[in-house]
């Protein structure tokens, strides 16, 4: 659309100019692995410590975090028609499950923060550009789907990258665009290294975040779901007497058949 290109020329730094060229060859393989649901991703953000890992395979998704470079802590898991969260009870790993169709229920306990767990399963915003329809990722109604706007070479922090850029419009009720989110995917020798996210608004450009991709590939290790073995599983609080008295009901154990390949 014409007006988008005008905006690109107007802003000097960072944005693509000229005719749209093709995405990096590697982009397509990343898109495929994300969209087909078989990948393992580890990422963090610039200036912050701690890694987040998302493992997706056979319709299951596991998210865990490594806050201090040592142990991985289970965060959220989805398989079949249920979502799971994890916690410690007297230093023992436990889990709670909730059927997906009860996610908006008014009898859910606000303490269990199932909404936060649902969000924990989503792809980081920057990578959702490559898989916009990801089952676990939602987008605000005002944000349009990303459009590829061009490739170029960029030097970021003293290193050269091949850069693919995508733009999403933030739409308003007047039918116009209040701003745009620009994503610069930085590749080195065919490998995705970083994604920078910018806000373009009122003629200004602001770097919002830089996602650092530690690992993103389409092979899932055999023991990727091994940490889900033998975890006592409880039912989510749903407004019954056990919920009221804080005496959760055990449903069984997580693990076993879930790990079967």
């Amino acid at each position: 659309m014409n007006w988008k290109k005008i905006a690109a020329v107007f802003m000097a730094c960072g944005l693509m100019t000229g005719a749209a060229s093709a995405q990096q060859p590697a982009a397509e393989s990343y898109q495929n692995m994300l969209q087909q649901g078989k990948f393992q991703l580890e990422y963090t953000y610039e200036g912050e410590s701690g890694l987040t890992r998302i493992t997706t395979d056979k319709g299951m998704r596991l998210v865990d975090k490594q806050p201090d470079g040592k142990d991985w802590n289970l965060e959220a898991f989805a398989a079949g028609d249920k979502i799971y969260q994890f916690y410690y009870e007297d230093k023992k790993q436990c889990a709670k499950s909730l059927p997906l169709n009860l996610l908006g229920s008014s009898s859910l306990s606000p303490d269990e923060r199932w909404d936060k767990k649902q969000q924990a399963l989503s792809l980081p915003d920057e990578l959702s550009v490559l898989s916009w329809q990801d089952k676990w990722t939602s987008h605000p109604g005002s944000l349009s789907a990303p459009a590829f706007t061009g490739s170029s070479q960029r030097n970021v922090d003293g290193a050269d990258y091949d850069c693919d850029q995508y733009l999403c419009d933030i739409r308003n009720q007047a039918g116009g665009v209040s701003g745009q989110l620009a994503y610069n995917f930085l590749y080195h020798e065919g490998k995705l290294m970083k994604v920078q996210k910018y806000l373009l608004h009122q003629g200004q450009e602001q770097l919002l975040a830089t996602l650092l991709v530690v690992k993103l590939d389409g092979t899932v290790p055999e023991d990727a779901f091994a940490s889900l073995d033998n975890i006592p599983l409880y039912r989510a609080d749903l407004g019954d007497i056990n919920d009221l008295l804080d005496v959760p009901v055990q449903e069984g154990t997580l693990g076993g058949s879930i790990n079967a390949h």
Binding site: T44, E46, V156, D157, M193, A209, T210
Partner: peptide
């Protein structure tokens, strides 16, 4: 946030 004040090169 650090926003690239360090020299990162490849990786971080």
């Amino acid at each position: 946030q650090d926003k690239g004040k360090k020299k990162h090169g490849f990786g971080f």
